[in-house]
Simulated assay, not measured.
Amino acid sequence: MAAYLPGGHQLPAGEPQPAPVAPGQEYGPGPVPAPGQVYAPGHVPAPAGAEFGPNKKLSTGAIIGIIAGGIVVLLVLAAAVIVPLLGGGGGGGSSAGGDKDEAAPAAATPEEWVEAYLTAVSEGDAEEAVKYIDTSSYSAALLTDEVLEASLKLGPIDDIKVGEAEEGDYSDVTVTATFTIGGKEVSREFQMYQSSYDGDITMLDGAARVSTYGFDDVGLTVNGVEVPDDALVFPGTYEFGTSLEEFTVEGESILVVADEKSEEAVSMLRPALSDSGIATYRELVTTSLRECLAMKTLNTPCGMDVTGMEKDGYAVVDGTVTRVMNAEGEAALAGLVGEVSDRAVVSTYESFGIDISVEAQNAEGQRGTYTTYYSGLLTPKVDFAVETPKVVWE
């Protein structure tokens, strides 16, 4: 007959089976071998001076000790899971180069983590603030004391209040914080994550992204610093501009950047011609167009070609073409603005009224003068990204 230990565990076949236990009897614990002592299967020696049979009861003290020991083990296991996320400061974010910073922030909880981060930002300490955030996805070129100092001059950060952390389903924690930037209240959530590699906390979205989309060749600047690629900024106020003096930022150029919504506003920024750019474009186009108007040839770099023009057997005589801009054309040229068409290229959809007269000759050598109002002028484009901008007619 097979024997069962308490808890329903059956002894292996071939092992000595304990004597049957009468109702009400309990099993006592077996003796523990001394260090280095090994018991053979089925051999359970009794301690000297005492005999513990299967019907011996466990003392009250022993029961309490076993229960307490079990609770300690469970608490240790629970602490190993919970402490790194909610109680362990430690790891921090990444350094400006994207690698983990050697000096871990001294923050014990996610709430303290967020408060310490925002405090460092509000004090202009970029070196300390960058320890709390993940900078691996985008450039950290703007996470500097220089850029942060300019940001705080535009809009100081005050009244930092941090709420209680809320745990998520996947080792993540959300902390809500409110603060003011230049007197304007900002309320946002900070997402924290426990690294599966080392158990440290990382703030996934502590900084905001600045997109450089639409500024290729023009160059986007943030608080005077050029950004070659999409970059991160601390929560704050930033002035946007361009690297080329011929361009500026269309619309509002000073924005508060602190969360995903403000990131969208930055992503909508586009370059436009500055006053300097408008003046330069107008001057270049005017000079080039007047050079073309002065030409007597059948064709010009600007268009206005009369090649192949025939009427009643008369063909245009090369060197006799006269091109004159009329009053409407002169007014359009004087008010020419231009617009950004692609990267740093500026063009226009403006039309210019030009009168063209030619001398034509037939097969018998007879000549006549003809006038046309169709100019066929090409589009003037200027690429301001090249060393010496000039007009290209396309």
Rank of each mutant, 00 (worst) to 15 (best):
G241D: 03
I82Y: 15
V382E: 02
G313A: 09
S94N: 12
D318E: 15
R323Y: 04
D145T: 11
G14Y: 05
T372W: 06
G353C: 05
K153G: 13
V233M: 08
M1R: 12
A165Q: 05
L11I: 14
G28M: 06
N223P: 08
S137L: 06
R188I: 04
G30M: 07
I63Y: 10
L154C: 02
G155C: 00
S375Q: 12
E339L: 08
L220W: 01
G353D: 03
M1A: 13
V316Q: 01
E149R: 11
V81N: 09
D134M: 11
G69Y: 00
L11T: 13
A46D: 12
L284H: 02
A13Q: 07
G97V: 05
S122A: 14
D134Q: 13
F190Q: 00
P235S: 10
L220R: 03
V346E: 04
K296G: 11
V340Y: 03
L255Y: 03
V121M: 08
L85V: 03
V358C: 11
T176C: 00
G183W: 01
V32P: 09
V186R: 12
Q366N: 08
G368M: 15
D158H: 14
E264V: 15
M304D: 02
L298D: 14
R367H: 07
Y39G: 10
M1N: 11
L273I: 02
Q361A: 05
G219E: 01
P54Q: 12
I278Q: 07
F384T: 02
K390V: 07
P228D: 13
D205A: 06
V285S: 07
P45F: 07
L77F: 14
V340F: 04
D275S: 13
M295W: 10
A150G: 14
K311M: 12
F240Y: 03
M325G: 09
A207F: 05
A315R: 14
A116M: 05
A279S: 14
